[in-house]
C-alpha cells in the first residue's frame, strides 16, 4: 500500500505516492532522480546522504519520506541552480577538496548550513560542524581549507554588496 505525500524539494512541490518504509533518501534518488544525494552507510554515521530540512542538515537515510511532509527540503542540486557553482563548490574544486567525490555533496551541505548560521567560523568550528560527514579518502585538511576559503569569499562579497 502506498501513501500520498506532498514533498517540497528545492522550491518545487511534488505530489507522490510512496510506501511508508521508504526513506527520504530513497525517494529523492529513486522517485525524483535527485541523485546528487549519495547513499552511504544507511545508519546515519557517514553523512553522504545529508540534505537540509528547513535549513538544518540531517542524514536523509534516517528520515522516513512521509515524515518530510510539510518541510522544505534542500539538496545539493539547489546550490548550483542556474548553472553557476556556489562559492563553496568552487572552493572545493579549486583547493582539491574533492577526491572520489562521494562525500562531497554532504560535506558541502553541512558546510553551507554552518555558514548560514556562522559566516566566519574558526577552524575548530568547521571541524565540529563536519563531524558527521566522513571522507574515506581522508582529505579533511583540504576540505577544511576550502570551507574557510569559501567563508572568507562569501563574507567579503557580502560586505562589498552593501
Amino acid at each position: 500500500m502506498k501513501y500520498p505525500l506532498t514533498l517540497k524539494v528545492n522550491g518545487e512541490t511534488y505530489r507522490l505516492e510512496v510506501k511508508p518504509h521508504r526513506s527520504l533518501l530513497e525517494v529523492l534518488r529513486d522517485e525524483l532522480d535527485l541523485t546528487g544525494t549519495n547513499d552511504g552507510c544507511r545508519t546515519g554515521n557517514c553523512g553522504a546522504c545529508t540534505v537540509l530540512v528547513d535549513g538544518a542538515p540531517i542524514p536523509s537515510c534516517l528520515m522516513l519520506a512521509l515524515d518530510a511532509e510539510g518541510h522544505e527540503i534542500t539538496t545539493i542540486e539547489a546550490l548550483s541552480a542556474g548553472g553557476e557553482l556556489h562559492p563553496l563548490q568552487r572552493a572545493f574544486v579549486q583547493r582539491g577538496a574533492i577526491q572520489c567525490g562521494y562525500c562531497t555533496p554532504g560535506m558541502i551541505l553541512s558546510a553551507y548550513a554552518l555558514l548560514q548560521e556562522n559566516p566566519r567560523p574558526t577552524e575548530a568550528e568547521v571541524r565540529r560542524a563536519l563531524v558527521g560527514n566522513l571522507c574515506r579518502c581522508t582529505g579533511y585538511v583540504k576540505i577544511i581549507e576550502a570551507v574557510l576559503a569559501a567563508a572568507e569569499e562569501m563574507a567579503s562579497a557580502d560586505v562589498g554588496s552593501r
Binding site: 553523512g47 545529508t50 553541512s110
Partner: peptide, 9 residues
C-alpha cells in the same frame, strides 16, 4: 552527543 546531523533529528 552524535554529530550536528544526528542532533538535528
Amino acid at each position: 552527543m552524535g554529530s550536528v546531523l544526528i542532533r538535528n533529528l
